[in-house]
């Protein structure tokens, strides 16, 4: 079994009103050094060992996990199941 960690982020150039609200809140909390924030999504998948796992993950991202119109994704594959 492998643990696949998928990170989904809004594409460059796509406005992120949620990120902007987070940035403004951090500024108000006394962190003026924050000049930008982007909110994304993190998924952790437990996946069977498979020689073709890269292709499978890319297909999962394209078909469901990310929306290619507005989102990019990255992933890492780790040994074993995360506790």
């Amino acid at each position: 079994m492998k643990t696949v960690k998928v990170y989904i982020t809004l594409k460059q150039g796509v406005l992120d009103p949620q990120g902007k609200a987070v940035q403004e809140s951090l500024n108000k909390l006394g962190f003026p050094e924050v000049h930008g924030a982007r909110v994304g999504r993190f998924l952790e998948l437990q996946v069977d060992e498979h020689a073709d796992i890269d292709r499978q993950i890319k297909e999962m991202c394209a078909k469901l996990l990310a929306n290619p119109v507005i989102e990019d994704y990255q992933y890492t594959i780790e040994e074993g199941v995360a506790q």
Binding site: L15, D16, P17, Q18, A21, N67, V69
Partner: peptide, 17 residues
């Protein structure tokens, strides 16, 4: 329809959240 690719584009959260 957008998610299914029957129409182009995507939806984001409303500007004012």
């Amino acid at each position: 329809l957008l998610e299914a690719g029957l129409l182009p584009g995507a939806m984001l959260r409303n500007k004012q959240l």
